[in-house]
Simulated assay, not measured.
Amino acid sequence: MDDPNQIEVPPSFLALFATPSGLRLTEPISFVRERYELCEDLAQALTEQAAAAQFRTGDAESVVLRKMQAALSVDGSAVEPREAQWVVRRLAELLGWPQPEDG
């Protein structure tokens, strides 16, 4: 049966749910797609907030991104830490900011 869902999950997000070899997913594709939609929507929604925070505080873009990741990584967050990191990297991409250092 064909999958009627037309959402294409990017390789960068698929990698979050892949085995170390990268050949298999550790979760069903429907779950991965759901998580991707949540994370992409979150990144899109945070663009305005991040840009406003950078303008308001005068903080470097890297500082704003680090603060965003810290806020997304608290206990009880809607996203897991690996997803929070992806959201922040996507946020930087959407804003045209340098990619944050992994850490």
Rank of each mutant, 00 (worst) to 15 (best):
F17C: 02
M68A: 06
W86G: 00
A45F: 15
Q49S: 12
R82P: 04
A45E: 14
V74R: 09
C39I: 06
Y36F: 15
D41P: 02
I7E: 13
S73R: 08
Y36W: 15
R89Y: 11
N5L: 04
L25H: 09
Q69A: 04
E37C: 14
G58P: 03
V64N: 00
A15E: 07
V63T: 08
A51C: 11
D75P: 05
A60H: 14
A50R: 01
A45Q: 13
R90Y: 07
R89V: 09
L65G: 02
R33V: 04
A60L: 13
L25R: 03
G96N: 13
S73D: 09
D3K: 01
T19M: 11
D3H: 03
L94R: 12
P81H: 14
G76F: 06
A84I: 12
S21K: 10
E48G: 14
D41Q: 11
G103D: 14
A53G: 05
A50K: 00
A70Y: 07
L38I: 12
K67A: 01
L14N: 02
A45H: 13
R90Q: 15
T47F: 05
G96R: 13
W86L: 05
R24Y: 09
Q99H: 08
E93Q: 12
P81S: 13
A52Q: 11
A70P: 01
V64K: 03
Q54G: 02
